[in-house]
Amino acid sequence: MSWFRPIDIWFSEQVLPHERHYLRVARRWSRSSDEALDLVQEAYLKLLQYDDWRVIRDARSYTVTMIRNLVLQRVRRAQVVAITDIPTHDMPDLHDEKPSVFDVVASREALLRLLEDVERLAPVCRRVVRMRKFEDVPPREIARRLNISLSTVETHLARGMQQLMKMRRDVYVPDPRLAPEGSEDERLASR
């Protein structure tokens, strides 16, 4: 039995592959990269709670619309509105044709970066992650070879995975000291 619900599979396949696009539009409609990240995260959480996700025909456009609505809500709450803040309904994004698998994300770079991230893990942790994921050694066999308990293997793997998650998040948390003016979109887009 799968550990993934149909909504998780749908979300992973239909929503997440367009993340760069969401970040880009959210960045256009918000004042900072942090706010853009926040908007995209909020849209994701709403989608994952949406019971009728199956009726959504075009997940990418739907997510963009959702982000736009969140922006409008925030603008209304703030009550101070610069006219450029308001995303219009006829944004070309809403009519974008769905990209094919080949257009989706710079995933080659993402894979390369992931490989580099693994190399940056602490030595023991890296060793266990490499054995399990790259050499496909079963967890019990790793425990036997390294003469450690299965639960220690689990701890190393979990720490490694957590570190990899953190490294990927760090990529798109902007650092204003390093980012020259105007390059944030690129930084966001390049993750």
Binding site: W3, D8, I9, E13, E19, D103, V104, S107, R108
Partner: peptide
């Protein structure tokens, strides 16, 4: 790696 655009698509379950 060829066209492994699939990394991001290739999630769970499938």
């Amino acid at each position: 790696i060829g066209a492994a655009g699939a990394f991001v698509l290739g999630a769970a379950g499938i």
